[in-house]
């Protein structure tokens, strides 16, 4: 069963910049609730005032969700970085995981900054890094 995977980045609108991290958490939480009903998975990163999000699911749900995002004025300079059909989900364990810079350890922050740079240059690699980060984060939570 193949899935559609969509990857985009955007900058937070200036008027919302002061509470960017909070908005990122809200968005991740709200979409996690909505996605669990719609079988959408993915992750949302917020780094240095930029959103970077992966959405996975069936074509209709991914496209409808992305269209909703495109109508959202909290985003600026929204860029579609990758849209492809993949053999399976990468983020099957997360309805919508969040990777917010402000909540991260120093090590994670560095990795997140790398993801941000990679996103526009090599989308697939950036997605893979986000997946790794989440796996590490979960392990950290388990051992803590």
């Amino acid at each position: 069963m193949t899935v559609q995977r969509l990857f985009y980045s955007s900058r937070i609108a200036d008027e919302h910049a002061s509470r960017g991290a909070a908005i990122a958490r809200e968005i991740a939480q709200a979409s996690a609730v909505r996605n669990s009903a719609s079988e959408l998975t993915g992750t949302l990163a917020y780094i240095d005032g930029h959103f970077i999000q992966v959405l996975e699911g069936n074509l209709k749900q991914v496209e409808e969700t992305f269209e909703r995002i495109c109508c959202d004025f909290r985003h600026r300079e929204l860029k579609l970085l990758d849209y492809h059909t993949a053999p399976s989900r990468l983020f099957s364990e997360w309805a919508m995981a969040s990777l917010v810079e402000e909540d991260a350890t120093i090590g994670q922050r560095e990795a997140l900054s790398e993801v941000r740079v990679l996103a526009t240059l090599n989308a697939r690699e950036a997605i893979a890094r986000m997946r790794q980060l989440l796996a590490l984060q979960d392990r950290a939570v388990l051992t803590a």
């Binding site: 074509l59 496209e63 495109c70 109508c71 004025f73 860029k79 579609l80």
Partner: peptide, 17 residues
């Protein structure tokens, strides 16, 4: 500006961009 911005975003429809 809002109109120009919102229409400059990609349209992802039926697997096409």
């Amino acid at each position: 500006e809002r109109i120009v911005e919102v229409l400059s975003r990609p349209f992802v429809i039926s697997g096409q961009v």
